[in-house]
Simulated assay, not measured.
Amino acid sequence: MNVFLSQMVFASEITVYTYQHVPFAEQTDTTHQGLIIDIIDEMFSRAEIEYKVVFNPLKRGLTMTKRSHNVCVLPIVRTQQKESDYRWVGPVLISRYGLFSSKSQAIPLVTLQDAKPLSIGTYLGSGISEYLTSFRYQVQVTNDDALNIKKLERNRIDLWAAELISAQALMRQSKIQLGEPELIFHTSLRAMACNKTLDRTQHEALVDALNSMYQDGFMEKVNLAYGASL
């Protein structure tokens, strides 16, 4: 009976939550596309595990993953607060973050401490939001990171904290060019977080698949295709 149940768990489909985060993950009317979508597809294919991708806001994806069996969410920054709540597969992304100011109001920064008295826009549930909040910066969050460009242009925030590749894509999409960041201040490793009850065999298969993707050059190739680097 136990063997039978184990085989059923192994064969069960995994729901993978991700969120609109150009160019890493993007949902259109008919397709899912982006760097993360390509990584998910390759990783689950190599692990021989059935899956489906569902787009949800990051905060909701994290909550659903914590509560539900056979569910994962990515890309997530591993923090002390989150570490024990999930089973992890990673890293899937290496991200660099900068602080952007509006074209009309440049704010030269030498260190991150210079931004202490300023309002900083990020998006809900993001690791960089938690990072800045933990050091008592004045963080304002939105559900959609693209809204921060508009808030910056309307002087509703002083700075926008954003992942560099994503920031460039969002600027092109919104047709608002902010130029180079005033400061590049943080690098993080982002991973896939899975419900703690995820079958051990499935978890190991996904970890092995991701490791093989680094070893045979797939990860370097797919990152370069999207203008990122390892």
Rank of each mutant, 00 (worst) to 15 (best):
K150W: 06
E42C: 02
P181F: 07
T187L: 03
L112D: 09
L224D: 13
I149G: 02
R60T: 08
F185N: 02
L112W: 13
S119M: 09
S102A: 12
Q168M: 15
L5I: 15
I37Y: 06
N223K: 08
V89P: 03
R190I: 07
L170E: 06
F10A: 06
V89R: 01
K221C: 03
P108A: 08
L152T: 01
V141P: 00
I94K: 10
E153Q: 11
N195P: 06
Q177F: 15
S95K: 08
Q177Y: 15
D144A: 03
N2S: 08
S102V: 05
I120G: 05
D38I: 06
K116D: 12
R136L: 15
K175W: 13
I128H: 12
D41E: 15
A225G: 09
E50V: 09
H32I: 04
Y97I: 11
A146P: 00
Q173E: 13
T122W: 03
L124K: 13
A146D: 04
I176M: 13
T15K: 13
L35Q: 12
Q140C: 11
N148T: 05
S134H: 12
Q27M: 14
R87N: 11
R60P: 00
K82N: 12
G121V: 00
K196C: 04
H203Q: 11
I149M: 08
N2F: 09
S126P: 05
P181R: 07
D199G: 05
G121D: 00
F55P: 02
L124T: 14
G125L: 05
I76D: 02
E48L: 01
V54T: 06
P57W: 00
E153K: 05
G34N: 08
E220S: 11
N148C: 02
L74I: 07
T133C: 03
Y137Q: 06
K103R: 15
L109A: 04
K221Y: 06
S212F: 06
Y51C: 05
N143A: 10
F44D: 00
Y137K: 13
L170F: 05
V22I: 14
I37F: 04
N143R: 05
E13Q: 11
Q215M: 02
T79Y: 11
T63C: 05
Y131R: 09
A169R: 11
S134A: 13
Q168T: 10
I176R: 14
D199M: 04
M8R: 15
V139E: 07
V207Y: 00
V73R: 04
P23Y: 08
L152H: 05
M64C: 04
